[in-house]
Design a protein around this nucleic acid. Structure first.
Lengths: 240, 240
DNA sequence: CAGTGGTCTAGACCACCAG
DNA sequence: TGGTGGTCTAGACCACTGA
């Protein structure tokens, strides 16, 4: 299970091992896992190495420690996934709904002032503008407009943008995504919102504006979404 | 600076020391800090202990490591503070506004079914119900109702609830707060909302429902807030 | 009481980076 | 090449928990 000669660090191998044990059910939710000393003995490694693996799993939320008692597998699983950056698709799946989308338009134009500022590009730089209706279980859930700088994410087409943008960036362009900031506000539907989302003018809607960043702090997308308030609420967890 | 005989762990003392150095400006943003070996030598402690301190500061966002180059002080500071669980007061201050509040009512009653479920208590258990209008720069910003189990947070009064509830819990009761989950949705103002928030019926409002947890996963407060959409938008950062 | 996690030591070798 | 962080070892003592 643990290969000391692998270039992969031992603590990381142990992390994967324990994660698999949890997923397999070999380690049961809410119950104790072997002690640090047992793992050290089991794999003939140092207890400090075991601690490093367990520390990482604790900070990822898989395990929790209790002084004098032991280390336990965390319960909840679906909720766990909800944390972090999720795409609309991932978000809907975790809510038990079936996501789909309708592409309204896909174009390349020059960034306007506000968009250029948010994406930290020049006003003459070109951006993709992608408009979609997002559906959950076949019913309209949100109206979404994404602005993506061509310089940062070249080669985007109608096809690959319909798959996962994040996956395209991370795998095809070998860039790494680090974080996103969101601003969430309440508003009421105007004519266009009402028509596309199949609601009435004046009905409440949730506006979410997201800017996503690469590792070095470079913005790579600005997404403005309008969600139906009767079908969507935003859920998140904050640590103190 | 470092007291080896203190009951406070050395790595924690070192964390505080480095944090102060950053705040004082003794360690400048974006520049290298002393190497792990230097800290170890400087305070006559083990390098692994230094690493533990630095690891914690890295995960808190104060420092970042670069293989072969050194450890650096992170830039941004205000943005850093915005993350994590913040009270209304902290939130407003970080937005450059002056927070205040008007206590509407303070009572102890029996939990209703929904509240008991959210707080994981019995229906016959008593809860504090505290209603307030939250103001920013003297103008109504939100209407807030907090439900707090008496069993978990005993001794709450009109006075100490008006100061920081979190501070009371952490200092007077010696409990530690770990995290909170929030659900955010859009709605429109009803008669009561309109009156207390000084807006019109039908105006958009942001509903935020927060459940806060102690270290062991025990809920200690349920807060339902109604924010004026024209004055408040919720902002947060997500890591991938 | 025995076992657990929490802290700590004094070394070691490695890959990486800058000059 | 010398210094950095990354990984790892084989011990140690402590405070806490549960039986």
């Amino acid at each position: 299970m643990i290969n000391k000669n692998s270039p992969v660090p031992i603590y990381h191998q142990l992390e994967e091992y324990i994660k698999h044990q949890i997923e397999n059910g070999a380690l049961v939710e809410e119950s104790v896992i072997p002690s640090e000393r047992e793992y050290a003995e089991m794999f003939q490694i140092s207890r400090m190495t075991v601690r490093q693996a367990i520390n990482n799993l604790v900070s990822e939320g898989y395990l929790k420690r209790h002084k004098g008692r032991g280390t336990f597998v965390t319960k909840k699983k679906v909720e766990q996934e909800l944390q972090g950056m999720t795409s609309f698709t991932e978000d809907m799946l975790s809510r038990g709904m079936n996501p789909s989308s309708i592409l309204l338009s896909f174009q390349i134009t020059i960034a306007d002032k506000k968009t250029a500022l948010a994406l930290r590009i020049k006003e003459e730089d070109s951006v993709y503008i992608i408009k979609r209706i997002r559906l959950a279980d076949g019913a309209p859930m949100a109206l979404e407009t994404a602005y993506i700088p061509v310089k940062i994410v070249p080669g985007l087409t109608e096809e690959n943008s319909n798959l996962s943008l994040y996956q395209y960036i991370e795998e095809n362009l070998a860039l790494s995504i680090s974080e996103a900031t969101q601003e969430i506000e309440a508003s009421t539907a105007d004519h266009l919102d009402a028509e596309t989302l199949e609601i009435n003018i004046g009905d409440p809607i949730l506006l979410i504006e997201r800017i996503s960043y690469l590792q070095e702090g470079i913005p790579f997308e600005l997404v403005k979404s309008t969600f139906r308030a009767d079908r969507y609420r935003f859920i998140h967890t904050m640590k103190r």
